[in-house]
Design a protein around this nucleic acid. Structure first.
Lengths: 385, 385
DNA sequence: TTCTTTTGTCTCGTCAATGCACAAAGACAG
DNA sequence: CTGTCTTTGTGCATTGACGAGACAAAAGAA
């Protein structure tokens, strides 16, 4: 918490600026920070000497394009130690490796009943990662970030809610994975990672406050406030899946009735589809490929239901964007339209008018992307110490 | 946005720290910023020379209380220009003047139908302030902050929602008041000010994330995140009054049915009291003075209703405290207990366990206190330029 | 008293940031 | 091609902010 001195804050500030922007010219840095150009030269020189950034070949100029000496871009060091992202879904494990800047190098995925077999899932993740590292010839790893589909407390990620991940109760996935991988593992809620992914590279770019909704088997929210992920006082913010709907009696796995998750989860929708589309194997349907009117209406209705809950949240948070992710978010415009219409119907008019409702841009890769991005930042800031 | 140089960032940082805390010792500053004690001595010396802060008489020690040389408090300069806070309720106008540090010097209040007569209310506020200034012999004023019971957009405070403050539609209270008072007026939502008051001097001290609920004629939330008021992308966050309840058909002034505000507003409760307590004049009852079992049960029920909505919000935000203010918050423990029991029933267990539910500590003065505190900070930071 | 603890101050050396002049590298007019 | 203009980046001397550590001050504890 303590800011540990002001002595060379500027170097860190400039470094952070370069990392976050992905590359700047010295002149831009000077303009943005208010430092003199010579000071920037000095600081950048140090950063280059410390191999934290590199100067690009004289390429395209950044700003203006006017006449004058062309600027040289200063970019984060591309070479560096790769990082790892893990995405635990309710029934899959997805592992990816990326370079130091978060650019994916390869990934591997396996279906498994994650909910009920925690240790098997973590073993599977370990195996997948081992395979990937062999295939890509990767020795050292800079940081690992894992996403789990439930509320986690603190960075080690003890699973709190016994009703959500039944097989994970009392486990500390952070410690378990750390033991398997031989290094520290940061655990985050999957919706938080999805929000982070969209913030850095998806539909959240340019937004300072938005909600990312992971609508899949469970429904959770990742909150971005002030351009940063927000996780609440104990790290368990965003639990919207068990908001009770006015007019529904579906029994939820949490024991209550009428929870959002019980009504519009992917399972619930699949079981509806099993009735309306008896010729399909509901378990195998890709929601994004449905193109008949009946399923469109069904998805639209699900969107309206979700939107009704989100409207209240928008009234509370007043975000500038609402990004729908997860399998349902990727299912197409019918569901998004449903959400949008509920927002306009139930949220305050000014709130509804100022919120942009859209599907996730990164699709089912939001969480994994967020994990890789977060690992990338973690590795770089760790290396900066 | 530009940081205009790093040269003497520390001075500003230390100054800000002293302003925001209201007073610190040099040792605390050193510990918090990580600077050396000698550097702090230098910086504080400059600030004293610039008359931006003063050293207090050797008084009570701040931390620890252990043995050792007693610390001397460095506080914002006490002398300075007084500030003004305005509190517009649904049916009152309350004006207060405070010294530069936000300590109240005097206040005046008048009952008026604010909802339907905007200009009259602002005229009344102007007159009250004029009277106060004459009485207290105050010439110059450093800053004015006004709270209005509805969503405001930006700092000038254009009233957005036509259904809430019917007489204020299209007005810009900030501009109107600025014209009357001859100086800039910052307008905020009243719940935001209440939250700020509690954050600085009330039940929110020490909490980084909490919700302040103003439960009065309307119901609104003031959000504190990261130790700062949070107002959303457009400044209209916290509008929870029109969250629809599952099982109620009360017609709300917003046109919809079953809104929280319609069910548990002070009006609604008064009209219930008119039935159960026909011997009382419902309009004149002070809710805090009711002590019979029937009204206690009624208030408890109201608390449960509010708590049901707040449970969902706690699941989203995961705050460490929930502070109930407004007339209902001041009505006694029955209502607070109701809120608390709903939180434990409807919020996720981990969330419920970590949130402290309490009544506002500043009572009906929360908003006014917040306004004065905010004005005080505004005046000092303006003077610091 | 004497020791301990904590705070604030002093001095001095170091090094970061500035300001300014100047070099570098293109665009453009002629 | 040549000179001028514009913008970017770089030396260099100066200033002054910061840290290390010794020391003084002001209490409580023994």
């Amino acid at each position: 918490m303590s800011t540990s001195g002001f002595r060379d804050r500027s170097r860190e500030e400039v470094h952070r600026l370069i990392l976050n922007s992905g590359g700047m010219t010295r002149a831009e840095i000077a303009a943005l920070t208010g430092m003199s150009r010579s000071a920037v030269t000095n600081v950048v020189g140090q950063l280059i000497q410390e191999q934290r950034v590199v100067e690009e070949d004289p390429r395209i100029k950044g700003p203006g394009g006017g006449s004058g000496r062309p600027a040289r871009m200063v970019v984060p060091r591309a070479s560096g130690i790769p990082v790892v992202g893990l995405d635990f879904g309710h029934n899959h494990v997805w592992v990816a490796v990326a370079d130091a800047l978060g650019q994916p190098l390869g990934d591997a995925r396996v279906r498994i009943d994650v909910d009920n077999s925690a240790t098997e899932a973590m073993d599977a993740a370990t195996d997948l990662l081992t395979g990937l590292r062999e295939r890509l010839g990767i020795d050292r790893i800079g940081a690992v970030v894992a996403g789990v589909p439930g509320p986690v407390e603190g960075r080690t990620g003890r699973v709190k809610s016994p009703t959500i991940l039944s097989g994970w109760v009392g486990l500390s996935p952070g410690d378990e994975l750390a033991e398997r991988l031989g290094m520290e593992v940061r655990v985050e809620n999957d919706a938080v990672l999805g929000a982070y992914g969209e913030l850095r590279l998806g539909a959240g770019v340019g937004h300072r406050e938005f909600l990312y909704i992971k609508a899949s088997n469970g429904i959770g929210a990742g909150i971005v406030i002030n351009g940063q992920p927000f996780v609440g006082a104990n790290g368990i913010a965003g639990e919207i899946g068990h908001t009770q709907l006015p007019s529904s009696g579906e029994l939820c796995r949490c024991g209550q009735r009428g929870c959002l998750e019980a009504v519009v989860s992917v399972q619930a929708i699949r079981s509806q589809l099993a009735h309306t589309h008896p010729h399909l194997d509901a378990e195998e349907i890709d929601l994004a490929e449905l193109d008949d009117a009946i399923s469109a209406r069904m998805l639209n209705e699900a969107g309206r239901t979700i939107g009704r809950v989100l409207a209240d949240l928008c009234n509370l948070i007043n975000p500038s964007a609402l990004i729908i992710g997860g399998e349902l978010g990727a299912s197409g415009p019918a569901l998004i339209d449903g959400v949008r219409s509920s927002i306009h119907r139930y949220a305050q008019p000014a709130t509804a008018a100022s919120v942009e409702v859209s599907a996730s841009k990164l699709g089912i890769r939001s969480e994994l992307t967020g994990a890789l991005q977060m690992a990338s930042v973690a590795a770089r800031t760790a290396a900066a110490l």
